[in-house]
């Protein structure tokens, strides 16, 4: 009897490739991305490991990792990849998938609260209103006391205005958010 070989990871990998436009399958595991990664000491997921885990279809491990939220989007990996893979673009897609699939988000995934708080502020005012964004982020993440000494320092330098700097095109921005939501629901 002949056994049929199956590549369990292919579906997930093709999905990541289609969405990011990056040819993850061409990764040759040279580790150039990982050696230049600034969050190497803190992360649980080096970029070259992430590429291999995509090959192997390890969706749950990837989407539940701290590393995708610790990625600073510095683009070093994308710039240095000898195969031209946009590794940072792949990280974007993994973050989106983690939120969409409500993957077991680790406690270091505070990034998702930051992104939501930031974009909410942009939707309301057309521009980010930092004081409001930070207050909402703190409440969402319950990460209340981190860096509390920074706000008064910034205020003293007039760097944290008390009122939003609203764009007169805020209505157009709301329309873009509405259209983007409709698009995602389709």
């Amino acid at each position: 009897m002949t056994e049929k070989l199956q590549w369990a990871g292919e579906k997930f990998m093709r999905e990541v490739e289609a969405r990011s436009g990056a040819r993850v399958s061409s990764c040759l595991q040279c580790h150039k991305c990982s050696s230049g990664c600034p969050i190497g000491p803190e992360t649980d997921l080096l970029s070259s490991q992430a590429m291999r885990m995509i090959h192997l279809g390890m969706e749950e491990e990837l989407l539940g990792s701290r590393g995708i939220w610790l990625c600073a989007s510095c683009q070093t990996c994308s710039a240095r990849c000898p195969m031209g893979i946009d590794v940072a673009g792949v990280m974007d897609v993994l973050r989106m998938m983690a939120v969409e699939r409500k993957a077991a988000l680790p406690d270091k995934a505070r990034g998702r609260h930051f992104h939501r708080s930031f974009l909410g502020s942009v939707r309301r005012h057309g521009r980010v209103f930092e004081l409001e964004m930070m207050a909402i982020y703190k409440l969402r993440s319950m990460d209340l006391f981190r860096d509390m000494d920074k706000a008064p320092k910034l205020m003293k330098k007039s760097k944290l205005p008390l009122l939003p700097n609203r764009s007169r095109s805020a209505g157009e921005v709301r329309k873009v958010f509405r259209n983007a939501r409709k698009e995602e629901e389709r």
């Binding site: 989007s73 973050r95 939501r116 974009l119 521009r127 980010v128 921005v173 698009e183 995602e184």
Partner: peptide
Amino acid sequence: VCCGSTPAHSSSEGL
């Protein structure tokens, strides 16, 4: 208006 910065490219291709 805001360019969307990291929060947009990390959470919505459209935005």
